[in-house]
Write a protein that binds this DNA or RNA. Structure first.
Length: 294
DNA sequence: CGCTATGCCTGAAAGC
DNA sequence: TGCTTTCAGGCATAGC
């Protein structure tokens, strides 16, 4: 999946086809993804208009005109494709069966009044879809206890230090915790730590002073997180203009990774050439430079 | 065959 | 005993 920048890119890609449009028809091809679809999911969506498409952490939220919110999460392998609907095909003489364009693992189809057909594909099925009343959204199972938006005003050195104070857990794991910051994932955590010059092995508590206030390291890490996410969104946005679909792939920013998936390659910082190292923390790969990340 | 993969929930284990 | 924190396992599929 998609971490925050990819999800934001997908949201922007879906916007023209979804925002302001109605669901003419919705089809689910199986009873569940990571969790079951809510009862009568397709029927409850039919005829509803999407007032706005927003994002919270790694979730996409469609505000509906009946007071409910459509919740979309891409898990590890979820993606959307946007196709022109049958009504807008170039050859009106030939009947175009919409399913002919479908692939395996296309689990959900949305036919929109915008004339677009939106297919949700998810081989591993770690994604989910849900419908929740707007009034209950903050307390629902997906969002209760969720941390701050890393690109929002609440993500400050003071906040980070307060949440990390007293926690012996490694920085890497602390940053991945969606209850602290919503949206960072395995790739961008490694990238942000490299930018901040901080070791993923350092304890989270070392970013707080004894009185719980932020250290200079906390300020540097907040700035690094913001910068890497903003740059990745900008890169995703630039690739999106050339494609009508939103596949949630890593896009152009991949070429800018400083450490992720670069084990053995030389760190690009000016110091005595040092190879980027891969270690496993909490069962997942972490990439870092042992020379410049302390 | 074994290993890896952008997420995250659950339950066990460990620590205080 | 209990609360909190940490960690491995599992979900399911594809690619190397």
């Amino acid at each position: 999946m998609p971490e925050l920048p990819e999800v934001e890119t997908v949201r922007r890609g879906l916007q023209p086809a979804m925002e302001g449009a109605r669901f003419d028809r919705v089809e689910t091809r199986r009873a569940d993804l990571r969790v079951p679809f809510p009862r009568n999911f397709a029927a409850r969506l039919a005829g509803r208009r999407v007032k706005a498409l927003r994002r919270r952490g790694k979730f996409i939220l469609g505000e509906l005109d009946d007071g409910n919110v459509l919740i979309l999460h891409l898990g590890m392998s979820g993606s959307f494709r946007i196709l022109d609907g049958a009504g807008s095909q170039a050859s009106p003489g030939a009947f175009h069966h919409p399913r002919s364009a479908e692939r395996s693992h296309d689990h959900v189809a949305f036919e929109m009044s915008s004339g677009k057909r939106i297919l949700y594909n998810d081989p591993r099925r770690f994604g989910l879809m849900d419908l929740v009343p707007a009034a209950e959204i903050d307390g629902c199972r997906h969002f209760a206890g969720m941390g701050v938006e890393p690109l929002g005003a609440d993500f400050t050195p003071h906040y980070l230090a307060a949440r990390f104070a007293g926690r012996a857990t490694p920085l890497k794991a602390a940053l991945l915790d969606q209850h602290v910051i919503a949206g960072l994932g395995n790739i961008y955590v490694s990238e942000a730590l490299w930018r901040a010059g901080l070791s993923p092995l350092r304890s989270a508590a070392t970013l707080a002073r004894k009185d719980g206030g932020p250290t200079a390291r906390a300020a540097g890490l907040v700035a690094a997180c913001r910068a890497v996410l903003e740059e990745a969104i900008a890169a995703g946005g630039s690739t999106l203009r050339n494609h009508t679909l939103t596949d949630g792939s890593l896009g152009a920013f991949q070429a800018n990774f400083a450490v992720y998936d670069r084990e053995g390659q030389a760190c690009s910082r000016p110091h005595r050439p040092t190879a980027i190292r891969r270690i496993v923390q909490g069962g997942r790969s972490t990439f870092y430079c042992p020379a410049c990340q302390r």
